[in-house]
Design a protein around this nucleic acid. Sequence first.
DNA 1: TAAAAGTTTGCACTCTCTGCAAGATCGCTC
DNA 2: GAGCGATCTTGCAGAGAGTGCAAACTTTTA
Lengths: 205, 205
Amino acid sequence: MTPDQSRPGLRDRKKRQTRAALSAAALRLVAERGLDQVTVEEISEAADVSARTFFNYFPSKDEALLGDQPTDREVLAARIVAAPPELSAFDALRLAFDDVVEAVEADREVWLLRLRVIAANPSLLPRLISGNAETEQVIVAAVAARLGLDPCHGHPTLVTTVAGAVLRTALMQWVERPDTTTLRELTAEAFAAVAAGLPDPHAAT
Amino acid sequence: MTPDQSRPGLRDRKKRQTRAALSAAALRLVAERGLDQVTVEEISEAADVSARTFFNYFPSKDEALLGDQPTDREVLAARIVAAPPELSAFDALRLAFDDVVEAVEADREVWLLRLRVIAANPSLLPRLISGNAETEQVIVAAVAARLGLDPCHGHPTLVTTVAGAVLRTALMQWVERPDTTTLRELTAEAFAAVAAGLPDPHAAT
DNA sequence: TAAAAGTTTGCACTCTCTGCAAGATCGCTC
DNA sequence: GAGCGATCTTGCAGAGAGTGCAAACTTTTA
C-alpha cells in the first residue's frame, strides 16, 4: 500500500531537513564569526542534533559549508557527454556549467552567503567546484569519454582543471559585485577570454 | 673576525637542516604509508626533534610535504613584472613559470617524490602551486601591476588561476611518465593548448 | 504488532595544532 | 672565555576535529 511513486518518505525528508539545517547553521555562524571561531559543537547545537550526528552528514566542518551534493556530479557528467557532438570538449564544459550557473542563481541568497564565507576564509577556496578531487575525476572521465580518449591522456584533465578555474574565478568575481552583473555574464566573459587564448584586455569593454 | 661575506651562520644552517630533515622525513614516510598513516610525532622523531618543534617550522602536516618556500613567491612576482613588455600577461606568466619548471627539474628526485605523494593523497593537490592563497594573491598583484589594472578587475585573477591550473596539470602528467617526457615539454604543450583556446586535439601528435 | 533496517547519540579515543614558560644554544661584546 | 641578549627547543596543558563502537530510538516492512 505504500505510494510507490510519490516517495520522498518521512525518513528521507528528515534527513534532508537535518542536512539543510546543519549546512545553514554552519554558513550563518561562520559568516558571523569566521571559520575557526565556530566549533562543530556549536553548529550541531544550532541545528538541534548532537555533534556526533554532524559527522554522520559531513566528513568535515568544511564540507558543510561547500554543499557539494553528490548527485550534482552525475548530472554534470551526463550533460557533458550529451552535449552536441560538434562542440569542442571545452565548449561542452562551458555549456554544462551553464546549468551550474543556473542552479547557483536559483539559490542566489544561499550561494552569495556561501561565496562570502569562502572569500573570507580562503582555505576553502581551492575546494570550490572541482577543487574536490572526486568531482574532478568524474568530469575528467566524462570529457575523456566524449573525446574517445584514454583518460590518462592529458587533454581531458587540462580542459577540466582550466574550466574549473574559470568558473571559480567567475564565482569569486560575482560575489564582489552581485548587483552590477549577473553570474551568467561573468562566466560567459571568462570562458570567452579563455577561448580567445587569454589576450590582454583592451581599454574598451 | 667573523667572515662577514660568507654568512650562512651556524644558527641558520641548523634551521635549514632541521627544516629539510623534517620535510624529507615527512615525504619519505608519507610515500611509504600514506598521509594519514603517519603522525607528526613520527615525522619529528625521524628528524630527531620534538613534535612541538615540528610546528615551529610548519603550520600543518601538509605544509611539510608541499615545500612552498616563501622566498619563491617574491622571485616569481619579480619575474612577472620584469617580463618583456610586448608579452601578454598570460605569456609573462608562461615565461615566469619556466623558472619554476627549471627549479623543479633541478630537484628532480625530490619533486618526483613530492608529486607522487600528492597524486596518492589528492587532498593535497589543490594546494600545489598557487592553490596557496598567499602565493596566488602575490601573483595576481604582480599581473595587475603589469597590466596597470585595478587588482579587482577580473582579468588578473583569471589569468593567474588558469595559468596555475595549467602548471598543476603539467606537473601531474609529468609524474605519471617522468621518463618519456620532460616537464618543460609538457608545460609548453599545455600552455600552447590554452593559448590556442583549448581546441580538441587532433589524432596527430 | 513485531522484526528488520536505518538513525541518533554518548563515550572513549587518537590526532592536530596552539599558548605558555622553562631551559638550552648561539652570537656577540668586553 | 665569561657574560648577556636573542633565538630555538621542548614539555605540558588544553581545545577541537574526527572515528569506531555499541546502546537506544525511529521508521519501514512484513
